[in-house]
Design a protein around this nucleic acid. Structure first.
Length: 419
RNA sequence: GCGGCUUUGGUGAAGCGGUUAACACAUCGGAUUGUGGCUCCGACACGCAUGGGUUCGAUCCCCAUAAGUCGCCCCA
């Protein structure tokens, strides 16, 4: 227990960190390019925020939240996603006062009490962006394009972008009724989950994995056919902008988002080889959320990408960066007198910007050289009693085993030249 | 929440009812008293996730528990 991490969490070790940093750097690059600024919100929020924002009846809220009472008896929840929290921060800090459109991004841990599996942790990491304050479909397109270009910039291939419109409070009820009419006489054929969803969340019947392949699904009413004029033209414009940007997509009339706050545009980017966890990024428009949380009615769009999944995809396509040289110079000290001046030299090298290391176990020459070799240090500086006496060091080139004496006063400059 | 598979030293693993638990890597020491990567020699699990059970005898069979992992659901 004491030496193991809780289920569904994971240490990110030095051997893996390069990939994370690589992805995070790409995120910062592209967000700067598109004019999104970073925001960091607390890891936990009032439970009510997520209940209202995400919606009761969703699996995330009903079954997967890490909720606890603090010592004052307040119910708090580790954030299961960050859109509600970003909107909260937007309202609390009155970010709308500066600009009509506020463009934010975040990178951070999210928490959901799921059963862990490949590409799904209980603590997982998302990169997300939220653009709050503009209803123009060009903004929907910008968000989608940013998501696509981000993944492309990592070199990822074989991604599929699906888009759909899930309507708005004006037209969605009609569509839900149409769906219920369609499924009513097929209830017996639906899976148990879908029977429950039939009343509460008929939209969810569309992307059911169990029933999705059944024949009658071919004839299911399409959301597109039930959109109101406003939603339809909005969707058409999004597509037009995407076409103009040369973004390939497919309209998937069965694409639905799991969280309640989505309206109009919904999209998802998948990398099929990841199996059930193939959704790398997903998002859409959520025009009702700001008001739901207590602000003025404000349109907004956003998406989130699962970084574990991005990294899995990068790994499977062998796109992770290679580590660079860790140690450029390994300093070996032999004998008590040499320790001090070797240690000082170590510091001088580092101060000169050279990646230097040494073995403080003060073991045999052989053992220290082995260490140097393990670090793949291209150069070794050897300092023993004789060297100290004569104010020199031995500089050994590990690649060709050549070695010569260098004055202690010149060694830093000499190394700077050859490295 | 449901289901499959797995669990042997620091690591990867073999063994699968019977007396020293293979082999490899890593580590440490030596051959080479101040010169690595190659080679050779030596050391390195009083124990096979935990708790029960079956048996003359269990790492091996059975049950339970735990952990890991993968899949379903859901989601990023």
């Amino acid at each position: 227990m004491l030496t193991t991490v809780p289920r569904g969490t994971k240490d990110i070790l030095p051997k893996d960190i390069l990939g994370w940093q690589y992805v995070e750097n790409k995120i910062r690059e592209i967000c700067a390019l598109y004019g999104y600024e970073e925001i960091r919100t607390p890891i936990f929020e009032h439970t009510e925020l997520f209940k209202r924002g995400i919606g009761e009846g969703t699996d995330v809220v009903d079954k997967e939240m890490y909720t606890f009472l603090d010592k004052g008896g307040k119910s708090l929840t580790l954030r299961p996603e960050n859109t509600a929290a970003v909107v909260r921060a937007y309202l609390q800090n009155k970010l709308y006062a500066e600009n009509n459109l506020v463009k934010l991004f975040y990178i951070g841990s999210m928490f959901r009490h799921d059963r862990p599996q490949a590409g799904r942790m209980r603590e997982f990491h998302q990169f997300g962006i939220e653009a709050i304050g503009e209803e123009n479909p060009a903004l929907d397109a910008e968000i989608i394009i940013l998501a696509v270009r981000f993944l492309e910039s990592l070199g990822l291939k074989d991604l599929t972008l699906s888009i759909n419109s899930v309507g708005c409070p004006h037209c969605r009820p009609n569509y839900q009724e149409k769906l219920q009419d369609f499924f009513r006489d097929k209830l017996d054929e639906l899976c148990d989950d879908c029977k429950k969803r039939f009343e509460t969340k008929p939209l969810r019947l569309l992307d059911c994995k169990v029933d999705g392949n059944k024949d009658f699904m071919q004839n299911v009413p399409k959301a597109e056919d039930s959109l109101c004029d406003e939603c339809r033209s909005h969707f058409d414009e999004v597509k037009t902008y995407l076409n103009g940007a040369g973004i390939k997509y497919e309209v998937d009339s069965r694409l639905v988002r799991g969280l309640d706050y989505y309206t109009k545009t919904a999209f998802e980017i998948k990398y099929a080889p990841l199996g059930a966890q193939s959704a790398i990024a997903g998002g859409g428009r959520y025009d009702g959320l700001v008001e739901e949380i207590g602000g003025n009615s404000t349109p907004a769009v956003g998406f989130a990408a699962g970084l574990e999944r991005v990294l899995l995809a990068l790994e499977s396509q062998k796109l992770l960066p290679k580590p660079d040289t860790k140690t450029e110079v390994f300093v070996i000290a032999l004998g008590d007198e040499a320790k001090l001046s070797a240690f000082k030299l170590l510091g001088d090298l580092r101060n000169a910007g050279i990646k230097a290391n040494m073995d403080y176990a003060w073991r045999s020459m052989k053992a220290q050289l082995k260490q140097a070799n393990k670090f793949s240090a291209p150069y070794v500086v050897i300092m023993g009693e004789d060297e100290v006496k004569n104010n020199i060091v031995q500089l050994k080139n590990m690649a060709n085993s050549e070695q010569d004496s260098v004055s202690l006063d010149n060694i830093v400059e000499r190394l700077k030249r050859v490295l």
